[in-house]
Design a protein around this nucleic acid. Structure first.
Lengths: 292, 292
DNA sequence: GGACAAATACTCAGATTGAGTATAAGTCCA
DNA sequence: TGGACTTATACTCAATCTGAGTATTTGTCC
């Protein structure tokens, strides 16, 4: 069997309260896909990924983490296996080279953003389709109730995407069958597995949020507590309770005031910076998830 | 650069209150290593791993999960890269084929078992060495205090192994330099990266314990609550408070009584079985960690 | 100088957690 | 046959954490 090894990267930034990921044009000119590179001669995989990103996209990578290795035999071409090691990278959004663009995460996965009235999208459009697909199957009904159930579990992004795929509710399913969709599909599609990998990445970020200080790799050097909160909310896809959020941040000792203040047309807020020393003090950090 | 792709498996079982992992003999006849296979023609990586394990070891694999993909250029042989996709598999311990054996996890990583008086091993033997290695370095001191600090964070198994490695406290460091150890080393060593991968696996299991029902893949069909607790304790490496443990198990609805009872020389306990239906009911399950 | 926007300060009930005490129901052996 | 011993099971309780508020301050912008 023919074998190919690639590195794929989900490069994430948060701007204007929306998480975005970097996508590049594709030979087929239709769908975008994740940036991808062949494995170079660097000593470690992490270094190879960083090098590839900095070369291809010219971005200053703050954080890199291995996501998952995908290696299914391609649905379309048998007798050929692409093993792709997917990485998650966090950056600050900047100007891009031509050929690349930022996609809104919630344009790809609209059912993941619960800051807005996504509830109705799920309840009135998605769930009926899913339930029809499930029929009497206990197994399917169970998966639906866990993935889309109440309380909504933000981390299960991949579970939800896979349900959508199996229920033919995303264009990728139809593309994999080399068909045109004949029933409604949701969210903007991407090339091959790109959207699935992006879903994996979002789930990972949401999971880490609560016990690792990942947000700070997406923010500027200094920020107000509200900006911090908005960034977390964008990633988690939920609105948080301001007072409780602050209580937590303070208790965790994650940030320190700079003394300066920023004003955006309200009472000016103090500017804070991340105290990177906490990594050396405490073990479990991060800006939890619930405290709605 | 020469490139090779392999599948490695950390096959874990819990017997007599001790977590164990499967190791196989090695050509060098000295150190044991993890079972490993080349990638076969199965449609997915998971299937390839299952097939390899069932063929090589004849075990009934209950659960399989991808761990991590390691791909550093070998420290010993330059110009050659082995990319190994490591998997975690959970089984019930059974008889083994010749050439394979069960290793006690805490023989490999003695500093991980806090059910016994490991505290003194760390405080009196390991920490002094680590501190000497750290010297004045804030970064090193911080890592030590987080990895070995109080409260002890069970999940950071890999962090601890890596500190031990960097501080030359495990035989693998010396082997990688092709030297004989001239200062004390801790735990039984394995071939190349095997022990590092094993450490990754234990960390993963401990992490999952609290939100996925992984224990049940290691237990028999029916078990007493104490057996369940002992199994969790073995993996977590901590002793738990019996009453609080039971309170949690009941609240979670993870198990149901079978009506039968088992006696081991005390008041007979009721036998329970895992309610696999919970997976379809609730989202966040598992048998938490703390409730000391 | 008022309307507005956001920050900051407190409060409070209910749930969760860590740690016990008390008692029941078996086995084992002298 | 009846302790001694083991383990199960039932409750209790204080401290803390969480979710959800209310009230007050301090700026900016017309």
């Amino acid at each position: 069997m023919d074998l190919e090894l690639r590195l794929d990267a989900v490069i994430v930034a948060v701007t204007d309260g929306a998480p975005r990921l970097l996508a590049i044009g594709n030979p087929d000119r239709v769908r975008l896909s994740l940036p991808s590179a062949t494995l170079s001669d660097e000593a470690t995989l992490d270094l190879a990924v960083r090098a590839a990103i900095e070369k291809q996209a010219g971005l200053d990578v703050r954080y890199v983490e291995q996501l998952y290795t995908f290696g299914d035999v391609a649905r379309r071409e048998q007798d050929h296996r692409t093993v792709s090691i997917a990485y998650l990278a966090l950056v600050k959004e900047t100007e891009l080279l031509v050929g690349a663009e930022w996609l809104g995460y919630y344009d790809l996965l609209p059912w993941e953003d619960h800051r807005v009235a996504t509830h109705s999208l799920i309840e009135s459009q998605i769930k009926p389709e899913l339930l029809e697909w499930a029929g009497e199957s206990e197994e399917r009904l169970g998966r639906i109730s866990v993935a889309f159930g109440d309380p909504f579990d933000g981390v299960r992004v991949l579970d939800r995407y896979e349900l959508m795929y199996e229920a033919k509710l995303v264009e990728e399913w139809w593309a994999d069958q080399q068909m045109k969709a004949t029933s409604p599909v949701f969210g903007d599609s991407m090339h091959l597995d790109s959207r699935r990998i992006a879903a994996t990445a979002l789930g990972r970020i949401r999971g880490k949020l609560s016990y690792r200080p990942v947000v700070f790799d997406l923010l500027s050097e200094s920020f107000t507590l509200l900006e911090l909160q908005r960034c977390v909310e964008a990633l988690a896809g939920v609105q948080l309770h301001k007072q409780n959020f602050r209580r937590l941040i303070e208790r965790a000792g994650l940030v320190e005031g700079t003394g300066e203040r920023a004003s955006h047309g309200g009472r000016p807020a103090e500017l804070f910076r991340y105290r990177s020393e906490v990594q050396l003090e405490r073990s479990r950090l991060g800006v939890g998830q619930p405290y709605r």
